[in-house]
Computed example of a mutant assay.
Amino acid sequence: MKIIVDGDACPGISIITNIAKNYELEVIIYCDINHYITVNYGEVRVVDSGFQSVDMKVVNECSNGDIIISQDYGVAAICLGKKANVISPKGYIYTNENIGAMLEQRHLSQKIRRGGGKTPNAKKRTIEDDNRLQNNLLYLIKKKNIE
């Protein structure tokens, strides 16, 4: 089991790497050349800045039992299909039961924006988000270690 992070938009990297270090898990963080990420534990892999280049690397690297951290619902859906565990940077766990509704909501929001409408902006990150990420990442690691 390894932890793969879509690092372009992941503010919880220090939480992730600290937990991974404690459990001696491999961590791979992907980012494009427009981002500069350094970590004390794990590996940062830089890819070209092309459309969805980081997403494609995450999906291609993912395998059964890995933990993927991404806020992209499309990446989450593909990784779930590869039997990986997927969690958002805010700590929400994606499942086969909830990903369909999330993809549908994303589609409806895109449709509204294309029509000139507005959708709510993303909320600022809170301490509750950090706590949820930590707790649910630990939950997924412990669940995997029991299986």
Rank of each mutant, 00 (worst) to 15 (best):
K2R: 15
I4M: 08
I4D: 05
V5L: 10
V5R: 07
D6P: 15
D6S: 15
C10P: 09
C10W: 10
P11Y: 12
G12Y: 00
S14Y: 01
S14K: 15
I15W: 08
I15V: 15
I16K: 03
I16L: 07
T17D: 06
N18L: 12
I19Y: 12
I19A: 10
A20T: 14
N22D: 11
E24H: 13
E26R: 06
E26S: 10
I28E: 09
I28N: 02
I28H: 05
I29A: 11
H35P: 03
Y36P: 02
T38Y: 10
N40H: 14
G42L: 09
E43H: 09
V44S: 10
V44D: 09
V46Q: 12
V47M: 07
D48Y: 05
S49E: 11
S49C: 14
G50Q: 14
F51K: 15
S53L: 10
S53M: 08
S53I: 12
V54D: 02
D55A: 12
D55Y: 08
K57R: 12
V58S: 09
V59S: 04
N60L: 14
N60G: 05
C62E: 04
S63F: 08
N64L: 05
I67Q: 03
I69V: 14
S70Q: 04
Q71W: 01
D72A: 11
D72T: 14
Y73V: 12
Y73E: 07
G74D: 06
V75F: 03
I78E: 01
I78Q: 10
C79P: 06
C79S: 08
C79G: 08
K82S: 00
K82M: 07
N85R: 12
N85C: 10
S88C: 07
S88L: 07
P89A: 05
G91W: 01
G91R: 02
G91N: 00
G91A: 03
I93L: 11
I93M: 05
I93T: 11
Y94P: 01
E97D: 07
N98R: 10
N98T: 12
G100M: 06
G100I: 04
A101D: 08
L103G: 02
R106G: 03
H107M: 02
H107F: 08
L108M: 13
S109A: 15
Q110P: 00
K111L: 13
R113L: 04
R114L: 04
G116V: 01
G117R: 07
G117W: 05
G117N: 05
K118T: 07
K118G: 02
K118S: 07
T119P: 03
P120G: 00
T126M: 11
E128Y: 11
D129A: 03
D129H: 12
D130H: 13
D130T: 07
D130Q: 09
N131M: 09
N135E: 11
N135C: 04
N135H: 14
N136K: 02
N136W: 01
Y139K: 14
Y139D: 00
L140V: 04
I146Q: 06
I146K: 13
E147K: 13
